[in-house]
Write a protein that binds this DNA or RNA. Sequence first.
DNA 1: TTGTAAGCGTTATCAT
DNA 2: ATGATAACGCTTACAA
Lengths: 368, 368
Amino acid sequence: MKKKRIRIKDIAEAADVSRGTVDRVIHNRGKVAPQVKAKVEAAILSLGYSPNIIARTLANNKEYHIATLIPLPEDDIFWKLPQIGIQQAFEATRDFGIHIDQFYFKMDDPVSFVNESEKLVEARPDAVLMATQFYREAINFYRQIEKIDIPLVGINTHIKELDKVGYIGQNSYQSGVLAGKLFDISLHENVDILILHLGSSVSNAMHIMDKKRGLMDYNNNHNNKFGIINVEFREYRDLDKFGYFLSDVFSRETNIKGVFITNSRAHYFINALDRMGISNDLCTVGFDLIEKNCILLRKGEIDFLINQDPVRQGNLGIHTLVDQLLFNRSDATITYLPLDIVVAENLDLYLLSNTPSTSEIKTQIMAK
Amino acid sequence: MKKKRIRIKDIAEAADVSRGTVDRVIHNRGKVAPQVKAKVEAAILSLGYSPNIIARTLANNKEYHIATLIPLPEDDIFWKLPQIGIQQAFEATRDFGIHIDQFYFKMDDPVSFVNESEKLVEARPDAVLMATQFYREAINFYRQIEKIDIPLVGINTHIKELDKVGYIGQNSYQSGVLAGKLFDISLHENVDILILHLGSSVSNAMHIMDKKRGLMDYNNNHNNKFGIINVEFREYRDLDKFGYFLSDVFSRETNIKGVFITNSRAHYFINALDRMGISNDLCTVGFDLIEKNCILLRKGEIDFLINQDPVRQGNLGIHTLVDQLLFNRSDATITYLPLDIVVAENLDLYLLSNTPSTSEIKTQIMAK
DNA sequence: TTGTAAGCGTTATCAT
DNA sequence: ATGATAACGCTTACAA
């Protein structure tokens, strides 16, 4: 009934060799006579041996350093979320000998990214987790990492040119398609949708283009139900300037009924609208469950937030690397996380499952 | 720079006692002189000791048996999903000495539940995971479990009378509210919504009532935008009978524009409609990403599926129990999982993250 | 080519 | 009340 787990010792006895020999065939290191090897392999197969990861980890007694390179959480609260996931993963894996060294760069400053990436390389980590929107800089950074031949995974922004590294995050194109669907459900035909990009054009990179394409493709595939207006604005933090900009847009374009904000800054848009006294009868679709967005979602000022689970991105990113370090599984795979449609009525449930205090995952190691 | 992790040996040396003594104060077992105890505790605090779970697990070398009691996956494919999560969790925790013994009952048969629960008790497990809609039977079962004093968690159906046991699953009431929101977005006012319950009335229990209440409360709070019609039907598997039943309903009630199916059987409804040649210009909201529902969602025959992540329910359920067994953390907490709004445009992303092959979580132990 | 034994950090059983 | 020591299953250096 209660079958005991097969240990190395057991197959050593079965094959009538020593534990050392068994170990040698398992890791095929060292010399072992062909017939002996066959005998051991037969025993492994017939007894159904699988190694005890716990004991292996303890015996290995190795320390691994994973470096992270992400934007300063202070720069944009969005970046606090992956940070939470990274911390969770750290606590979950520290007993496996995993250390995490974090490097932060200024979100809008490529130079800062380059500086930090150099510091990171000097620290000689065993693996790297990266999140950046700087395409060229990321590719240059990858060249350096390639030289020292350690695994690298990206989160949040998919740098498609880097096909040798893993990616965990959202499918940007599909999130645009999904936004299209949400407008389709909510609005009548023959109205206009404003695509609004807030932030530096530097970061107005591929993944933002993908979101726009997704929305426009959806619209094309649905008989061009909507008119699409494309606009971007850098100085969104200056509510006055932003407000004037918006009233200009809305006075020129009087048929706008939907607004698609392509990143986590929807709350700036709503606040600027409010400041200018422009009434908000718009259907607004934004991204990410940062606090200011959540408040406006509850109030009904924002209609939909698309969640890309940044906490999980950070968490899974670290776990993927741990997986590679501990079990040398080499997957440079792309993992697209679900795109959650968040409305006032299901918001709280998403927030709860994101809070670090409630998700007390201790150990979460990928394998086999 | 590279700080070594503090071990029992380290604090033993610091406090100038033996490892045995340190162990005694950590687990406050056995006698230890007050001053010695204070000295050790001081050392633990100042050096910042935390136990190495890996080594502890190995040394403990204990075997735990977790029993599960869920409906037969063959009875209703929905129940394959928690089963997947349970299997994942098993693979993740087997190295921690966790065994899983599964008991299955016939979904619509309380007697079968009772029989299996008796077998389960005889097997003398160390913890139990349960999913059932049979209220009375579940409560009786709990009385037996209470006697042998082992942890019990429920998934999927919240038996509120059992306030001493943990629950992981959906907030049924809130899922009804969310359905209300979805109709609100999709439909004009002054149309009717049909609430359709398919299945035995036995299982037409509290959590189904909660869903209905949620929808109706939403409607009340929005000026009774819709009319609500309540209907249930047992023999939904008989497409002919079901079809006649539906044509009867729809010929009497000609203003129905929305249909809320309260469980995972939305596909039966669509098929019966189709069979009778009733045109589907309805807004349909159902539950759960089982294959037949997914196909209809893609085709546009179902508009929304609310996902309660049954895979994760099974997975988290096991992990919660493992947590209690390994770290004696006693939380009979209620964990409500997010309610995902699934449409054709984000369906694939949810399916991918549910597939057992992609989620290769090895070890996921809760702690601290 | 093979076997032996020490060690990973913790627990638990002995003596003292 | 305290200390020494053998386990747990695996790795690895060293001996044979």
